[in-house]
């Protein structure tokens, strides 16, 4: 990755959950870390999130869920990204996610899950270290 290349990240709220404090906060933190952040707003279906990633040529998709629907939404987003050939897009998640769900989410292709109280610097560092190098 060249020094100049901006990381483009989609911050999305899948489903009907309206708790967007964390998502908005992170959008701001990511922008401060020099990333270009596409914020989608609420009520996104997995299909919408993946279409957005496709049109925006996003490097990263960040998903936030507090209503307990992560086991449905997160794997579905990964699956659809793969269907569209976007295998190299990094998918990360956050919100209220029981630890025991994490192994399964990782197996489904979610790169990392950040629970409540994770320092934002840790999230930024993870993304910077794991984002794809674009061909």
């Amino acid at each position: 990755m060249t020094e100049d290349r901006k990381i483009k990240i989609i911050v999305a709220k899948p489903g009907l959950d309206g708790h967007d404090r964390g998502a908005k906060l992170l959008a701001r933190i990511f922008a401060e870390a020099g990333m270009e952040v596409v914020y989608t707003g609420l009520r996104q279906t997995p299909e919408m999130i993946v279409e957005t990633a496709l049109q925006e040529d996003a490097d990263v998709v960040g998903l936030s869920s507090l209503s307990g629907v992560h086991m449905y939404f997160f794997p579905r987003v990964v699956e659809l990204l793969r269907e569209k050939g976007l295998d190299d897009v990094l998918v990360v998640g956050g919100g209220i996610i029981p630890k025991e769900d994490i192994p399964e989410l990782k197996k489904a292709g979610v790169a990392e899950i950040f629970g409540p109280g994770t320092p934002t610097a840790e999230i930024v560092a993870f993304i910077k270290n794991n984002v794809r190098t674009r061909d």
């Binding site: 489903g15 009907l16 309206g18 009520r43 279906t45 209503s67 307990g68 629907v69 086991m71 449905y72």
Partner: peptide
């Protein structure tokens, strides 16, 4: 649950995964 709060029936596409959740 969120579908009820957002005025969707349980079988609406946006209700997927949300029925009875919160």
């Amino acid at each position: 649950d969120l579908p009820t709060q957002a005025g969707y029936d349980s079988d609406h596409p946006l209700s997927m995964g949300e029925v009875g959740k919160v």
